[in-house]
Every structure is written in C-alpha cells, then in structure tokens.
C-alpha cells in the first residue's frame, strides 16, 4: 500500500520541531499561508492521499481542572494528507472546516521535512505566522492587563 497516509518514506524529522510548525499552521488562516507561500518559488506538485475531510475530535477536560478526564464536547477538525513527488508525506490537522487551510498545512508540513527547503520556508512562512500569532496573543494579554484590579488599602484619613 503505497497510498497509505501513514506511509512516510523519509523518517519524520524531530517531533518537537514538527509539532511546532504544525501547531503554527493550525492557527493560521488559509489566505495567510497562501500569501506567504507565494513569496517562494512554486512548490513541487503533490498528490492528495486523504481528504481534505472534515470530522470531529472529542475535546476532553479534567474534573476539577486536574483530575480524571471527561468528555467536554466535540469540535470540528479538517485534515489532509498528501505526497510530494519525492515521496515525502505531509499532514495537516486544523480546527474548523477550512479544506484549503488543511491542504496548505499538509503541503507546508511535507516541504518542511526536507532539510534543504526548511530554512527558506521557516523564514518566509513559519516565522512570520508565529510572529503574527504571538502579536495577537500579546494584544489580548494587554487588554486583559488593563482590566486587572489594583486594590488599595484604605488608610484612615484625619
């Protein structure tokens, strides 16, 4: 079975690095990824192995925040697996129903596994996306900080 999505001829590069870029791609809009990919030479052709297809992931919580796991409810997730002509398989798993985002995420995942391509992609796609996401998080944190209560101890006034 050469078409199995689990078939990865190139040994997957180190999980922490791959986890990082896949997580960044999951948080990016399809248009953001596409726009940044356009700045690079066109990627080699790819063939879809699975999807893009939308399904559900059951989101779990923990009793009391740190106890036994329980099923909180489901969320929509879209996934895609594809193969580049050199045989490298890429996967995309993204929250929501955007098929284009899942396919672009899988494409970038496949491209990033090639050490020769990785630095250019990191600089043109992954790093700018990570920066934009950090900026969004920072803006939220700054708004939250403005609503932090500063208590003053009342001193007796005489």
């Amino acid at each position: 079975m050469t078409d199995s999505p689990t078939d990865t001829p190139n040994a997957p590069s180190d999980p922490p690095a791959r986890r990082r870029w896949m997580s960044i791609l999951a948080r990016a809009q399809a248009a953001e990824i596409a726009e940044r990919l356009d700045a690079l030479p066109p990627p080699p052709p790819h063939r879809r192995l699975r999807g893009p297809e939308t399904g559900l992931v059951m989101v779990r919580g923990r009793a009391g925040g740190d106890g036994a796991p329980f099923n909180l409810g489901e969320m929509t997730v879209t996934r895609c697996s594809l193969r580049l002509e050199d045989g490298v398989v890429g996967h995309g798993y993204v929250a929501g129903r955007d098929a284009r985002q899942a396919e672009l995420a899988a494409l970038v995942d496949a491209l990033m596994q090639n050490p020769a391509r990785r630095p250019a992609l990191e600089a043109a796609v992954i790093a700018p996306l990570a920066e934009a996401q950090a900026a969004r998080r920072d803006a939220q944190a700054r708004r939250a900080a403005a609503t932090r209560v500063e208590f003053f101890t009342m001193t007796q006034m005489r």
Binding site: T6, P15, V57, Y93, A95, G96
Partner: peptide
C-alpha cells in the same frame, strides 16, 4: 475564561500537535 490549546495526537504521527485554540 480565555483561550486554551486543543492538543491531539494523530495516529499517523504518534505525537501531539495543537489543532488550534478554543475559548472556554
């Protein structure tokens, strides 16, 4: 209240990735 990452381990990868953030 705020955003938390949803982590999922695709069987074909064998390690967890973030699917995105949700507000809870």
């Amino acid at each position: 209240m705020g955003e938390v990452a949803v982590e999922f381990t695709p069987p074909e990868l064998g390690f967890a990735i973030d699917l995105g953030d949700i507000t809870v």
